[in-house]
Write a protein that binds this DNA or RNA. Structure first.
Length: 417
RNA sequence: GCGGACGUAGCUCAGCUGGUAGAGCGCCAGGUUGUGGUCUUGGAUGUCGCGGGUUCGAGCCCCGUCGUUCGCCCCA
């Protein structure tokens, strides 16, 4: 066993892992583009204030889970724990608050210092969407529909359920929080120890407690709907109507909550039962207050993020790599011609490989091992006639093909081999 | 930060109440010096995660530690 191991919570993406990862990104990007989203890449580390300004006061735990350090110049920087803050910072610093709406897609690594679990790493990867500018519920519906289409294209939508809720506007939420505190205080004796702490710190979190006793109490808790202002209620009803129109199936889950104050109105999660307790595969909501907290003007926005590792684990069939053509010269004199064929195939867009050494048997074995669909065998007597043997490794049949026609032969037939 | 399970060959794992390591797959070579997949013969490979302890003797028992994993907490 090697002395040097990857740092706890990090891992290498190699072979099938990498292909799953890349397939998730490629699929999401393609569909996001069809919705008009444009890809942004923002730095993986930012001035610590980019995150502390929006997250810092609300929960001190958040600070403990961030990778924060002083750089050589003495500035505090932080590896980004999520994507939205950086996008909002970039929006403001690039003056794009003057050019709304902005429809942003991103993909990349995020960092959180926490205990690794299934599909949950210290360096993990997310894809995400941010639709910044529109205040209309149609924007929420588009963002959700795009997420749904991505899950569908990945083949994981069948396992996932979209759960939606509204957090209302500020007045609605304040009224609701007060009602919750009143209700749970009345049931204080039956609450779990964890939830008693939540009651002090973050009462809405009791709603998604995993404790069985808590769940019974939560079942009788008031929902936000009685406390919604008329505007908030209309917003939510309109969103649901739009989702029906987009044919995105959903269930309402009044227990979905968000910890931070800049969230309001829409909150949603795509949940699967296939990943143990880490069942949320895509989560998002409306955050009308965040851009302002980043120093920009009051700007409505809605978005989601999804863990690439978790989505990759849900892919039923691992993405395949292109089948190769193996070029096999027999004898030193054939090597030059083999190199010509090799490049002609590559330049025609095919995956072509040539082993550097070994006899014919060994090279055919290797061709088999890399999953080659065909082998081009160049012997000296064939070369003298200007041909090579092209062997279909599936059927074993073999045919002499003029050297100049090999690329066309391998790609141009009705049933390419 | 807390709790359970697990660390043995490149991979998946076996290894009895303690007697100084095994299988399958893979890999390498031959049977077959210009024809792969199947078959067959042979071969290489381990600080048994690491450190300490008990013992005549530890892969096995004890303590510690690191890591993995499943949960809890948290979840921006």
């Amino acid at each position: 066993m090697a002395d040097l191991q990857p740092v706890r919570g990090t891992r290498d993406l190699i072979g099938e892992d990498q292909r799953r990862h890349q397939h998730v990104i490629d699929t999401a990007r393609r569909i996001a583009v069809s919705y008009g989203f444009d890809e942004w890449s923002t730095p993986v580390f930012e001035d610590t204030r980019v995150f502390s300004r929006t997250l810092g006061e609300t929960s001190d735990v958040v600070m403990k889970e961030m990778y924060t350090f002083d750089d050589r110049g003495g500035d505090s920087v932080t590896l980004r724990p999520e994507g939205t803050a950086g996008v909002c910072r970039a929006l403001v610093t690039n003056g794009l608050t003057q050019s709304l709406p902005q429809k942003v897609f991103y993909a990349g690594p995020m960092f959180r210092y926490e205990r690794p679990q299934k599909g949950r790493y210290r360096q993990f990867h997310q894809i995400g969407l941010e639709l910044i500018g529109p205040a209309e519920p149609l924007a929420d519906a588009e963002v959700i529909a795009c997420g749904w289409d991505i899950l569908t294209a990945l083949g994981v939508a069948g396992d996932a359920v979209l759960e939606i809720n509204t957090l209302g506007d500020t007045e609605s939420r304040d009224a609701y929080r007060a009602a919750l505190v009143e209700y749970f205080t009345a049931h204080k004796a039956a609450l779990s120890k964890d939830s008693l702490e939540r009651l002090e710190r973050n009462p809405m979190r009791i709603l998604d407690s995993k404790d069985e006793g808590d769940k019974r109490i939560v079942a009788g808790a008031p929902t936000i709907h009685a406390h919604l202002s008329e505007a908030a209620s209309i917003f939510y009803e309109t969103l649901k109507r739009h989702l029906l129109r987009f044919a995105v199936p959903f269930v309402e889950n009044p227990q979905i909550v968000r910890g931070l104050d800049y969230y309001g109105h829409t909150a949603f999660e795509f949940v699967t039962g296939k990943l143990g307790s880490q069942g949320t595969v895509m989560a998002g909501g409306r955050y009308n207050g965040l851009v302002a907290e980043m120093g920009g003007p009051q700007t409505p926005a809605v978005g989601w993020a999804a863990g690439i590792e978790r989505l990759g684990m849900l892919l039923e069939v691992p993405p395949a790599i292109a089948a190769a053509v193996a070029i096999i010269p027999v004898g030193d004199a054939a090597e030059g011609a083999a190199m010509d064929v090799l490049q002609s195939l590559r330049h025609a867009g095919q995956r072509a490989e040539m082993a550097y050494r070994g006899n014919l048997k060994r090279r055919l074995e290797r061709a088999n091992r890399i999953g080659a669909r065909a082998a081009v065998i160049l012997g000296e007597d064939d070369l003298a006639r200007g041909v090579a043997q092209v062997k279909d490794l599936g059927t074993g049949s073999q045919e002499a093909v003029p050297l100049g026609e090999i690329a066309a032969y391998l790609s141009g037939r009705a049933r390419p081999i």
